[in-house]
């Protein structure tokens, strides 16, 4: 009884959950440190967490422009994807023939591995930001679109019937009933798109390009600067986690079900 209540207290509430997560992360880093030092692993293979954190601080000025470039492309691509995915879902929802025509192509874009088209985009558009941005949009907008359309289609028919009873216009039906009802499903797609946008951007930077965290990881790895390479990986993860948490916060404010 006492044991179960202690476990409940540990994970209870927002602060409790965070405390458990931080403790788990600390344990993983401690184990990492012990293994690297204990087995005398050379730094060019795996540096200690302390060396990586040191590099994150000391090399920040070098890494910062690349972090900025990656985050700018991810955010821009993400916002374009959400706008495009949602607008297309609304168009498809109200025009079944349009949906039947374009949905197979959107499904196809979900299936094609991004890594196969990034070299082609680089060939056509060069190694600048345009190719990366297009890669981000191509990777993340289909998931927004598919989730949004599926959520629109699953709106409770009785709730729609109220709108029909009031003879609401399409715009009113979408704004007052369909969008709020579909919001949890839309956010599932939006949060997945955020993850895919980051993956697409870093993948594009690794495949080709001089700027961005992906390009830096490749460069540092080639010169065996592993603490710096890992610092870039950590910054990528940190940005991804912050991005995801921000979206979860917005979701909690908007979804009142």
């Amino acid at each position: 009884m006492a044991e179960s209540s202690r476990i409940r207290l540990l994970g209870e509430g927002w602060f409790g959950g965070l405390a458990v997560q931080v403790a788990l992360l600390g344990a993983v880093l401690a184990l990492w440190y012990v293994l690297v030092v204990g087995f005398d692993v050379p730094e060019w293979q795996l540096p200690t967490p302390a060396r990586i954190f040191g590099s994150m601080v000391n090399d920040f000025t070098t890494i910062a422009p690349h972090l900025l470039s990656t985050s700018r492309n991810v955010l821009l691509g993400f916002f374009i994807s959400v706008a495009l995915g949602l607008s297309l879902a609304i168009v498809i929802y109200f025009n079944a023939p349009v949906g039947m025509t374009i949905t197979p192509f959107i499904n196809l874009m979900c299936i094609i591995p991004l890594i196969t088209i990034v070299p082609l985009l680089m060939l056509w558009l060069g190694f600048g930001n345009e190719a990366k941005l297009i890669a981000v949009v191509l990777q993340s907008f289909p998931i927004v679109n598919l989730n949004a359309f599926a959520s629109f289609s699953n709106v409770d028919p009785l709730r729609l019937e109220l709108m029909q009873s009031l003879k609401a216009t399409r715009y009113q039906t979408m704004r007052c009933c369909v969008l709020p009802d579909a919001m949890p499903g839309i956010f599932t797609g939006v949060k997945l798109a955020a993850i895919l946008a980051l993956i697409a951007e870093v993948t594009s930077e690794i495949v080709g390009g001089n700027t961005g965290l992906g390009a830096q990881i490749i460069q540092y790895t080639q010169y065996m600067k592993m603490p710096q390479a890992f610092a870039c990986v950590f910054y990528t993860a940190l940005f991804g986690a912050l991005f995801h948490q921000s979206l979860s916060f917005i979701e909690r404010q908007l979804v009142k079900k």
Binding site: L158, R159, E161, L162, M163, S165, L166, K167, A168, Q172, C176, C177, P180, D181, M183, V255, K256, K257
Partner: peptide, 29 residues
């Protein structure tokens, strides 16, 4: 349409609106 009001089998209130917002929904429409 405005001359008719419809009451459903279940309350059919929208969970994302407060009770007052639900009640005032026809006025908005």
């Amino acid at each position: 349409v405005r001359k008719m009001g419809f009451v459903f089998q279940t309350s059919n209130l929208y969970p994302w609106l407060t009770v007052r917002e639900n009640i005032c929904l026809p006025l908005k429409i």
